[in-house]
Write a protein that binds this DNA or RNA. Sequence first.
DNA 1: GGAATAGTGTCTATCAGACAATATTGA
DNA 2: TCAATATTGTCTGATAGACACTATTCC
Lengths: 235, 235
Amino acid sequence: MSVDLVLLTVRDDQLAVLLVRRGIDPYRGRWALPGGFVRPGEDLADAAVRELAEETGLRHPPAHLEQLATYGTPGRDPRGHVVTVAFLALVPQSRAPVAGTDAADSRWAALGDTSTADLAFDHATIVADGLERARSKIEYSAVATAFCEPEFTVAALRRIYELVWGCRLDPRNFHRKVTGTAGFLVPTGRLTTRDGGRPAELYRRGEAGLLHPAMLRPARERPPGDGAARQDGSR
Amino acid sequence: MSVDLVLLTVRDDQLAVLLVRRGIDPYRGRWALPGGFVRPGEDLADAAVRELAEETGLRHPPAHLEQLATYGTPGRDPRGHVVTVAFLALVPQSRAPVAGTDAADSRWAALGDTSTADLAFDHATIVADGLERARSKIEYSAVATAFCEPEFTVAALRRIYELVWGCRLDPRNFHRKVTGTAGFLVPTGRLTTRDGGRPAELYRRGEAGLLHPAMLRPARERPPGDGAARQDGSR
DNA sequence: GGAATAGTGTCTATCAGACAATATTGA
DNA sequence: TCAATATTGTCTGATAGACACTATTCC
């Protein structure tokens, strides 16, 4: 009985997952998700947080942690019938572990990067399931704020949605939606300071866990970096 | 390592969950979810289907089966640290096990019935989680058809939504929504025969697994049997 | 015809998509 | 002033809510 973690953050304007290099067999030297065996009498979520701290040096509890799914197909682990409970964790970059600085060899892999397709065990599947969970969950809940710093701008939150969904969102419509949904954002009354450009309002997460009605994910995807792309291809 | 099943169906115009009476300690004589230990080398979903057949006499594989969550809090089982993977299964009444006819003592408990609050282990929590999963999943997916017979009417499907959500839905708007969502329903061209009342069109489930856009669950709940209730309380 | 049930017409309010315009900063 | 970024105005189309109406059966 083990736990594995899909720890996601947004860094360098990309959605990334934390990987660790395995130091022991099986799959020695291969990249894998952080995780390990549950200790006798230990709660599953506790084991997940403990492994995260031990293996990656995460200093704070993650802003969001939820159970993802349990993987128990015979043969998924060459050591025998090992069932693993996968967790999805989201953290802002300021609270994310710094890869490579701790006991274990670790790195951040951008999602969509081909290297996440070549992980140990069935971890590529688990990463894909975690990403899909994140994609759908930010539609109807406020968990996207778990990627954000304690105070953040509407533009920062919009960028989170764009990176997770892999699409462009209209700034006006997004702003109207998030500021018009009761309990989603709480204005702090403070502004960003920046070089050039109008300062932005700073917000904190509100009390609302679920969004009514949900954010609408565009049906057709547009690459998040492609500012020239148009939905209908015209012009 | 065990599996437990939340098997739901609609019978007697109520949403109901199948319970079995425990024949052995712990909790001997108490009602519990069907389930049991996973055999070495057995896949989790296979174990779920096997236990369902063994304990309840279910003859067909369930129309819908999905993993719900894994429960591993220390102390949830007095025998020690037993982790259980819960599954949610949905079946139409025609394919539901007939309670009390098989080896194990079983019965259908209407949800909302107080008896589901007094189950063995943490099974009351698991039932509540399963119900919540069903409630949210019929919003954005077509799984509500798993409660229906192979051919069903729009009114039958609407009744499913009303019972699962615990509210009344407008027949016109529901009809427009489900027939207007591509891939949700496939007309068979056949009609019901009935005593009195216009015959209804019969449909089969379509290919669509997910609904775009989602069905909207009313924010305020109205009791499904209360035809006189009005949303604003006027008149 | 009347009761019962199924299905349709249609008005309105709401909300998302589109996109232009204005606001506020630093260089 | 311009470049850069944030924020708002507003038109339009799609769709959900409300509810009255028509349709088809059996008695």
